[in-house]
Amino acid sequence: MTVGATVWAVIGTGWVVWLVLTGLVRRLPGIDSVVHAFLGSWLGRLLALAAWAEAGWHLFGQRP
């Protein structure tokens, strides 16, 4: 396993564990809270849309 693949595995595991944990523990902010926090204002919404646009361009329009 390469270094890059290992780091991605760790990051991916972190996402899965945290998503499950925030789903189980109601006191912790879930992914919906994070998204809604960004969408609360124009600045946050534009930041979220910029990240979304960059992710789309990266995933669908650039060399893999």
Partner: peptide, 17 residues
């Protein structure tokens, strides 16, 4: 841009191919 450091697009590339 190294082979042992894949980007997200390369990880998803197997699906998006």
């Amino acid at each position: 841009q190294r082979h042992d450091l894949p980007t997200l697009s390369r990880l998803f590339g197997d699906v998006t191919d």
